[in-house]
């Protein structure tokens, strides 16, 4: 076992543990904070995958914006400081079963898939990921259209969110 593998196992374990806490903790603020921890773990996983840019964007977008939004939403939609009553609905066992089945199914499928043992190629020296990413995102031959569509989506979401949350007098 190499250092990298040990680091991965630790990070993955911590991430999954905090992920479990996200879906199980009674206090929603805690759940949101555990989400932050999970997202941070995923950012570290990105770093392990040599995708530093993705890691940083993960932190900026998810922790800096989405998690904060969640915390705000939790705070804005509660009457008391604490969350009372059941946090899981009556079908939680079915949900758990589905989750376990999903994982089992995915795991079984992954085991039978031939590409699992693939090893990562060395990233060529001098390969500038960010420059390449930027070039592909803005190249008409590559992904400029999805990129633009995503921007339109964000704009629409912004307008929609402002409209929905706007407190009409």
């Amino acid at each position: 076992m190499t250092t990298e593998q040990i680091i991965f196992l630790i990070v993955a374990g911590a991430t999954l543990a905090s992920g479990l806490l996200v879906v199980t903790s009674r206090n929603l603020i805690h759940a949101a904070l555990w989400l932050v921890a999970t997202l941070f773990g995923v950012a570290i996983v990105y770093t392990l995958l040599n995708a530093g840019f993705m890691a940083v964007v993960q932190v900026v977008v998810y922790i800096g914006a989405i998690a904060i939004l969640f915390i705000f939403a939790v705070m804005l939609t509660r009457k008391d400081m604490r969350d009372s009553g059941a946090q899981l609905n009556s079908n939680w066992w079915a949900g758990a079963l589905m989750a376990v089945l999903t994982f089992g199914g995915l795991f079984a499928m992954l085991r039978t898939w031939g590409g699992m043992s693939k090893t990562a190629a060395e990233i060529p020296a001098g390969f500038d990921q960010i420059a390449e990413l930027g070039a592909q995102l803005t190249s008409p031959e590559a992904y400029v259209l999805p990129f633009e569509v995503a921007s339109v989506l964000l704009l629409a979401a912004m307008v929609g969110a402002v409209y929905l949350a706007f407190n009409k007098k």
């Binding site: 530093g52 840019f53 964007v57 932190v59 900026v60 922790i63 800096g64 500038d128 960010i130």
Partner: peptide, 15 residues
């Protein structure tokens, strides 16, 4: 020597 150093600033700001 992070190649997204400038962005890293913002990321830590988020924390």
């Amino acid at each position: 020597d992070l190649n997204v150093g400038a962005l890293f600033l913002i990321a830590t700001g988020a924390i």
